[in-house]
Design a protein around this nucleic acid. Structure first.
Lengths: 311, 311
DNA sequence: TATTGCATTTTGTGTGTTCAAGATACACAA
DNA sequence: TTGTGTATCTTGAACACACAAAATGCAATA
């Protein structure tokens, strides 16, 4: 997997840049300006430059003295960009901890050092993982020492809850007064979904499929320009990712989903937002029912108490 | 302001315990078991013990040798417990940074050390503040060095957005299948609201009024047992706190709100959830309109683009 | 038996230093 | 004039140690 002397950040950037190149239909031979990437990726030119060196070694780009880098060929689909949530080496541990917790192998109350020992990772790295989990809302710092996992209903009920929540605000987001469709982003997700239908569905990894699905919803809700709804969809997706990590899933059924996604984009493009909203609501309802096999107004099971200590 | 030789945590706990004693209608002379507080506050007995020592010095409790602490009198209302979000010394800096940012005194891109210098706080403390802001969704780590404030619409539009969001899920939360009313909590917020009507409204600080309002909604939505909705209301409240920090506000109008809150509790107690949901929707709509002076489907202003870099 | 009082263990923060690498400034080439 | 190449400055993570205080275990007491 190419040289290892580039920094971790540079490696990540290389993957993201590769993904960008592949998805944005840029022409072979085009000049790739360093500063432009730097601005888009919110970093300085230094790591961009290193990332380009990595891509050069892969043969994706070529460097010409004093003229910079040029695209030589589109990067192979094998490069795995962490699309939804930036991640690198810690990602594996993150999933491992999540998995252990969901499988009941970790107590509700844990201390940092115990986790350090158990997963053999340095404090700083662990803390980053914990902060991310905290941000995603499934672990909390205790006032004194240690951390505490948030009480979660079982996977099925959690799914049901998330879809009931999504059915409330996702359709409504299309009707927000600030709604503005961004053509380039719409085209990007349209290409993604089309690619899935054209066989990508069978070819891509499960994680990748999930990411593309999340990205679709993130992008569409993003058009609403309502910060609260945008936050909400990101949060739901982060949680869903963990839940779906173990759930069964059915490649065939995703075909329908892609078709529906494409149809939704069409409705939006025609400006039929009202209709699109209604369609999205039904779309979510169908997915919800398939995943939980449940009536909308029935609880899946008696939920454990999730009341936060209020004292 | 009592001695200062207790740890910061103990100080915080003392405030929270005082608040708990005042609000939970406990009898004078009652025995206060250390372990019970420790469990509720999610800490060990050690800091609880120190907190009790602080309260003893205030004359709120008395210690009897080998028998423990006993309540002597209810703590004065002057003790300010950070009810909504635990905080201590860092709280001040947190608000200061928020204020500076909203006032445009801080650039969009900032580095940790620049902030350390500017606000004269140690790295660790600053990082905790930054992580909290990140959790609340208004700042993000850049991939390389530094942090980046999230683009926010102006205060008025943000308010409008938040209320449109709340009108979607708050009423719906009352209709969740997992909805379970917790009597003791309902009584607690009822007492709070009643206390406000009985003059507390004019007596209490602005921050305190805000906290009691937030707590009301948090508690009611909490009955839904839907984790996503509970997260959402916490998030909205965190953001609203910052926005309202500078906005004008009208003590008189809160009287109506309290009455409506009490009415909502009655409806819930009668089990009229459907009716309660509809009432809550109207309640939010009224508050929304008063705060933004806007029609529901109109944008307050052309919102700035808040599209997150997707590359 | 439950709870306090106290001693002991463990945890996580603060401090200072070092260093890889990200940010930045500037000269030079196209 | 724009963008690359390169040197320099700055940042923030890693490491090690000391210490305050939080967690824990146990004897004493109501």
């Amino acid at each position: 997997m190419s040289r290892n002397d580039a920094s971790e950040l540079a490696q990540q950037l290389a993957l993201r840049m590769a993904d960008h190149l592949r998805r944005s239909g840029i022409a072979i031979g085009a000049h790739l300006a360093e500063q432009q990437f730097a601005d888009e990726l919110k970093v300085s030119r230094t790591p961009v430059r290193r990332a380009l060196a990595v891509l050069a070694e892969m043969g994706v780009v070529v460097q010409e003295p004093n003229r910079g880098y040029f695209l030589r060929k589109l990067p192979p689909a094998s490069v795995r960009p962490a699309l939804v949530d930036g991640a690198g080496l810690a990602e594996e541990r993150y999933l491992q901890i999540a998995d252990d917790r969901l499988a009941g192998k970790l107590e509700e109350h844990v201390t940092e050092t115990a986790l350090m020992r158990r997963y053999g990772m340095p404090r700083r790295e662990l803390q980053r993982v914990l902060h991310r989990m905290e941000k995603e809302g499934w672990i909390e710092r205790k006032p004194g020492h240690g951390w505490m996992f948030v009480q979660m209903p079982d996977s099925l009920e959690a799914h049901a809850q998330s879809y009931r929540f999504r059915m409330l605000f996702e359709p409504a987001s299309l009707l927000e007064p600030g709604f503005r469709l961004v053509k380039s982003e719409l085209e990007r997700v349209r290409r993604d979904q089309q690619m899935l239908l054209d066989g990508g569905l069978m070819r891509l990894s499960r994680a990748r499929l999930f990411e593309l699905g999340s990205d679709f919803h993130n992008t569409v809700i993003g058009f609403s320009n309502n910060r609260f709804m945008i936050d909400a969809i990101h949060r739901v997706n982060a949680m869903r990712r963990l839940l779906e990590y173990r759930a069964k899933f059915d490649r065939e059924r995703i075909t329908d989903q892609c078709r529906e996604h494409l149809h939704l984009l069409e409705l939006l493009e025609q400006g039929s937002r009202q209709e699109a909203a209604e369609f999205l609501r039904r779309h979510l309802d169908v997915v919800r029912e398939r995943k939980t096999g449940m009536d909308k107004d029935k609880a899946v099971s008696t939920p454990r108490s999730t009341v936060t200590a209020q004292l």
